[in-house]
Computed example of a mutant assay.
Amino acid sequence: MEHLLSIVIATIFILLALLHLFWVFGGQWGINATIPTALNGRRVFNPGWPGTLLVAIGLLSFALTNLCAVGILKGPFDNKYTDYGMYMISGIFFVRFVGDMKYVGVFKKYRKTVFASRDTYIYTPLSLFLSISNGILAVLL
């Protein structure tokens, strides 16, 4: 069961990483609904390609950590570091789930933008799933 959960999580991370790489190389699909906006429609921030590339690399490393944690891949680190990594991934996505109390997360204040709608129905629940599932794997392994 742990292998299947790890594969599902790793697949999500890889797909998200590929999407971020698409944006790094100039792709525009989906970009308008993935950046928080204020009520006037202005972006809260404008991520550049270096930050977007860093996120893609992070997501790929999260996928590899998941696959190493269950033994599908052999990692370069001792298993205890992989365990720490799983807890860190869980924590990162829990923080994303909670959000900034204004534009992002379950407690966001602004809820009437395209991003806010997607955040409510897609991004925040996905963050909760990734937090809980990585946490469960970290405890079980």
Rank of each mutant, 00 (worst) to 15 (best):
S90H: 03
I72C: 01
Y103I: 08
F94E: 02
P36L: 09
R96L: 11
L60V: 15
F115K: 01
Y81F: 15
A63P: 01
I35Y: 12
G71R: 06
Y87A: 03
K108Q: 11
G41L: 09
Y84C: 00
P76Q: 09
V24W: 14
T113R: 02
K80Q: 09
Q28N: 13
V24T: 08
A38F: 13
K102Y: 12
G75T: 09
W49N: 11
V55D: 02
K112T: 15
A69G: 02
G27F: 15
F77I: 14
F107V: 04
D119Y: 07
G58N: 10
L73W: 15
Y84K: 01
G51C: 04
K108Y: 10
V24H: 08
D119K: 02
G51D: 06
G85V: 03
T37S: 09
I89Y: 03
N66Q: 13
F97G: 00
N46E: 14
P47T: 05
W23Q: 08
I31M: 11
L64H: 01
V114S: 03
V55I: 14
Y103D: 03
L21C: 00
F107G: 01
G41C: 08
M101G: 02
V55E: 05
R96I: 11
M88A: 14
G51Y: 13
G58Q: 11
A33L: 10
C68W: 15
L39P: 06
A56L: 07
V106Y: 14
R111F: 10
K112H: 15
R42S: 06
I72G: 00
L21P: 02
V104R: 05
T113E: 10
L64I: 14
C68T: 12
R118G: 05
N66D: 11
L21N: 02
I57V: 15
K102I: 05
S90L: 07
A38T: 14
F77K: 07
G48H: 09
F45Q: 04
G27E: 09
A38C: 05
R118Y: 14
D83P: 00
Y84W: 12
I92V: 15
F94V: 04
K80S: 07
A38K: 12
A69W: 14
F25L: 01
K102Q: 13
G30C: 07
S90M: 06
